[in-house]
Design a protein around this nucleic acid. Structure first.
Lengths: 222, 222
DNA sequence: ACTGATATATAACGATGGTATGGTACCCCG
DNA sequence: CGGGGTACCATACCATCGTTATATATCAGT
């Protein structure tokens, strides 16, 4: 299908060369056609960019859905956060397009991703990790975790914060928030570490690394 | 000075009509001149936008510096956060330009604002509100508070989060982080409320509201 | 093979960022 | 008061952008 070819080419252009590279002519040339191939399928370039964002959200959701569901929901929550973070840092242009470029009009494109976060929090509450948490707190905490990660990724991408600090800042902030939500500090710390491990493993799989690489990473090198 | 006229016109165009309105011809027409008036003073439009961002940071810093220094540094910190938040919501296009538009290259334009945050945190530690806080934690916490607010403003501006929730989410997250940093919950809550009052008063002054609106809360401790 | 429809290439339009050219107005100095 | 240099700016121009009109090629169904 030409349409999917266009979307994939557009995502690649945007992801690898930035928004300036995503022009109608360039995109048409990328699939060996003329601009009409673009405009006969999309009303305008804005719609192309929207399709790319939709594709990017689908990829992020896919990554999140690949994460295993364990019996430690807080670790699952932390893993989702790490995946979110890694996604943003690995594809800054795409991340930018997903969360920063969209015009003021709400198009509800990130709603599914937000819902996944809500579900993760609900599981934490159901498991008794956040005692005394009323249902009304769920969307509030989801927004907190989301904006915390979002802000951190944006700061890192904008180079307001060195990359090596970002991970530590994220973990520390996550820890303090989880404790603030009522989780036990020791369990929270352990869940965050476990979540990071799971996310790193999922990242390896997503990147198609061979099994030996993943296995050797878990063992002591040697 | 024509240059300042251009910067102010550019800031107004960007702030009121968005980035699409900030074109060389439009900007030239705005000061009753031609595009050469722009390009003889700025290398290109990117430099114009940079100057606008610089101007916007200066305005934000000005707002922050107008805040009184009280004997409750945590309240001062909360007030700065509220001012930051209000600034972003009041001028979404400017906010966007300041933190989201800048290309990947670091230009250190927000460094001064970040330093103000660091100073506020240091005062909290000096006042004993965050016991057992090593110096190394200061930039980490500054990044946490910054990214927390940043993410929240971005989410609000992008309408991923309803405006009315944003304030509550911010206060709640600030509270939990402050407690996580070691502050006493009761004092933290009080400081946040006090900070919000101070910020609202400063906002009134900045907006040129009559004295009686703010005289009631002018009671500085000490 | 012919007809009709569909998709595409070509080329054009208006607007953009940016530049070259040339004139003008101003200011400093005699 | 006047002359000359300089800084500024209006105009016109270029390449490129998004987008569209028109002509052409391709393909399906008889």
């Amino acid at each position: 299908m030409v349409r999917t070819m266009l979307i994939e080419a557009a995502a690649r252009l945007l992801g690898e060369e930035g928004p300036a590279a995503l022009t109608s002519r360039r995109l048409a040339a990328e699939i060996g056609s003329s601009t009409m191939a673009v405009f006969s399928r999309f009303k305008n370039m804005a719609e192309v960019r929207r399709a790319v964002r939709q594709e990017a959200f689908a990829r992020l959701d896919e990554r999140l859905d690949e994460l295993p569901v364990s019996d430690d929901p807080v670790a699952d929550l932390a893993a989702a956060g790490a995946v979110f973070n890694a996604f943003g840092l690995a594809s800054p242009h795409l991340y930018r397009a997903m969360f920063l470029d969209p015009p003021a009009e709400e198009d509800g494109l990130g709603a599914g991703t937000f819902d996944r976060l809500v579900t993760l929090i609900r599981r934490c509450i159901a498991a008794g990790r956040f005692p005394d948490a009323p249902e009304s707190q769920v969307p509030v905490w989801a927004a907190q975790l989301w904006s915390m990660r979002h802000g951190l990724v944006v700061m890192t991408v904008a180079e307001l914060l060195p990359d090596e600090q970002a991970r530590f800042v994220l973990d520390d902030m996550t820890f303090r928030l989880l404790v603030g939500y009522g989780d036990d500090p020791v369990r929270a710390r352990r869940s965050i570490e476990q979540g990071n491990r799971v996310a790193a493993a999922a990242e390896s799989i997503a990147n198609g690394e061979p099994d030996e690489v993943r296995r050797s990473r878990k063992r002591a090198p040697g």
